[in-house]
Simulated assay, not measured.
Amino acid sequence: MLIAFLATGAVGAVTPAEEHIGPPYQDAPEMVARPDIPHGRLQSFIMTSAESGIFPGIRQLDNDITRRRDAWGNRIAAPAAEQSEAGPYRRDVFVYIPAGYRKGREVPFIVVQDGRDYAARMAAALDSLIAQKRVPMMVAVMIQSGGGDAQGSERGLEYDTLSGRYAEFVEQEVLPRAARLYGITFTKDPNGRAAMGGSSGAAAAFSMAWFHPEWYRKVLSYSGTFVNQASPVDPATPHGAWDYHARLIPDNPRKPIRIWMAVGEKDLHWQDPAETFRNWPMANDRMAAALKARGYDYHYVIAKDAVHVDGNVIAQTLPAALEWLWRDYPR
């Protein structure tokens, strides 16, 4: 595992760029709802595939081709036409609106993938952090995927594809709907826009910033799927998100992206060799090394004995991660 220290944070402050944490894990106090502070409200709406011009909907096929596995149990890539077919979806979108927000006021925000999994935790954390003025007043837009998982699924297409398509979906179809429904004016300042997710949702969050840094410059990643899971296969990035740390970050000028990331010591396929391109702890280690070599503003947490998108790790670290990401943004 990597151990290194970089100068980060406020001017004059030196904080560890990489740290190890371990059990017993404890929920951060900010994760407990408090009656003595203002509470934001959670709203929700539904989006369907029929309404989308960007993601009209697919679903996984279950056949002999898609069930094939290699020696390590990983799915063997198949032609896109043999992995999926057209299929409708419905997705929930949850919107956290902070207490005291006035309609029409420009506001920073965070977009969260697999939104249902994080809605309650984000609301509790943001209530506390905003009340304590440790982060700016902000909105959270928490978007459920179109369903399924990994190759051939709508979720896999949205999250594991290395392109700007998902960010464009959020920008063109999700944010305008939320703005109309709730009177929100989302900031256009890319430093006031963050993206977050776990697993493939974390890869999607990084892709939002990588392909559209004019829109997003903050990323929060839990157990990022920086491995080979993209479908359909793109010849330009044949190893999917593994290519972020193998080629894309090392071979391109540094982009204005700040990223907080965590991985479990016993995350998915933690014992698999590098040639599988599917070892999550190894992929996140290499991601941190690539970010460090290019001089990115990053913070990397390695969680001892933790597993994939470990809820105990999230409950302990989410408030501090949000505060670190927004540390120099105006309150």
Rank of each mutant, 00 (worst) to 15 (best):
E171K: 07
R254N: 05
E154A: 11
P38A: 07
Y296Q: 10
G183A: 02
Q172V: 12
E154D: 15
A167P: 12
E323A: 15
R102M: 12
D234L: 06
R331A: 14
Q271I: 06
E171L: 10
Y166L: 14
M142P: 06
G295D: 07
V170P: 03
L126D: 02
Y329K: 05
I184N: 00
V170T: 06
M287Q: 03
K103E: 14
L129F: 09
D36R: 04
D70V: 05
A195Q: 06
A289G: 11
A125Y: 03
I257A: 04
A205N: 07
R105V: 03
K255I: 10
R278K: 13
V263D: 00
R116V: 11
F186Y: 12
K218C: 09
A274D: 15
N252D: 12
E171T: 07
N63H: 08
R193M: 10
I130Q: 05
Y166E: 10
E106L: 06
R105C: 01
A306I: 00
H269Q: 03
V95G: 02
S199P: 07
G100W: 07
A204Y: 05
Q229E: 13
I37L: 14
V263T: 10
Q172Y: 08
G264H: 01
F55G: 01
H245K: 08
I46M: 14
H212R: 15
R294P: 02
P256I: 08
I37D: 10
M1V: 00
L162E: 09
R165E: 12
L6S: 11
